[in-house]
Nucleic acid binder design. Sequence first.
DNA 1: TGTATTTGGTTTCTTATTGCAACCTAATTC
DNA 2: GAATTAGGTTGCAATAAGAAACCAAATACA
Lengths: 153, 153
Amino acid sequence: MTRKRFENPGCSVACALNEVGDWWSLLVIKQAMLGTRRFVDFQHSLGIAKNILCDRLSRLVENGVLVRVDVGEHGTRYEYRLTDKGRDLFAVVVALRQWNERWNGSKDDMRLVERGTGEPVGAVSVQNSAGEPLGVRDVLFVDENGQPLDRAV
Amino acid sequence: MTRKRFENPGCSVACALNEVGDWWSLLVIKQAMLGTRRFVDFQHSLGIAKNILCDRLSRLVENGVLVRVDVGEHGTRYEYRLTDKGRDLFAVVVALRQWNERWNGSKDDMRLVERGTGEPVGAVSVQNSAGEPLGVRDVLFVDENGQPLDRAV
DNA sequence: TGTATTTGGTTTCTTATTGCAACCTAATTC
DNA sequence: GAATTAGGTTGCAATAAGAAACCAAATACA
């Protein structure tokens, strides 16, 4: 039985998870954000099986999250580089990181600072137009007609 | 062979994915944010197999993302409600939603607006202390001593 | 009161995916 | 010229997923 891929075109979260929602993809992307580009480096830093890494890299390339660039003179050295689409997952990765640090208290080996100033980056949050953070209770989910969906979280 | 659970305590992203990084968990959480609380409602709205739903709900309860509340008089009616920890995944869910809409252009059935004003919520992003958005190229990953890790993304 | 249905599961069975290890080919290094 | 490296592919055993059947307690329905 094929694992359900969330083709449901009515749910953006499902569609996003369809591309990057499996066990390894987001870790591959995070590692790419750290500068990893080569097959063997992904393999060693993540401790992932080679066939699974092959599969994930191919799928991420198919989906336009990574590009495979030929860097050898004669075609057996490749680099996997983030595309704009891939780099745009930065907020997702950082939000996950911060969530884990807030609730599981595990200290990551590395910190994230602004390149220019060296200041730590702020907390990733949903915001209104004034830049004030919004929790899930501060928003409404509305349908195409602007009618709010009943809800109590 | 047991699927690798990312116990690696040195990586927050891996730890976070260990709790909510499988195919269904984030969809269950998103659905809970929409107000779904009952087993059958999760089942029908997500189209998930009952045994898998059981497993995911139990795991999310174990990890403190949901609580199981007895709402029947005599103990066979339950509700699964988000905890503070679960609600705090809001930024992750919205970031994924927005990423998909930016890059895959699929229109979600529902829109997200601020409860008070009815205005659409802003784009979730990593920011510096001044509230300016930061891309992955605008930050440095530094180790415990503040030394930047070599990197070119 | 008696029957049907709903709820929240568990069990069984089949299929898919994972992880490991072995292997493989072209290119590089020694 | 031999050994190693890069980037895979293949085969196998173990695990997880999905569908469907089943089940007990509680509720709704007549």
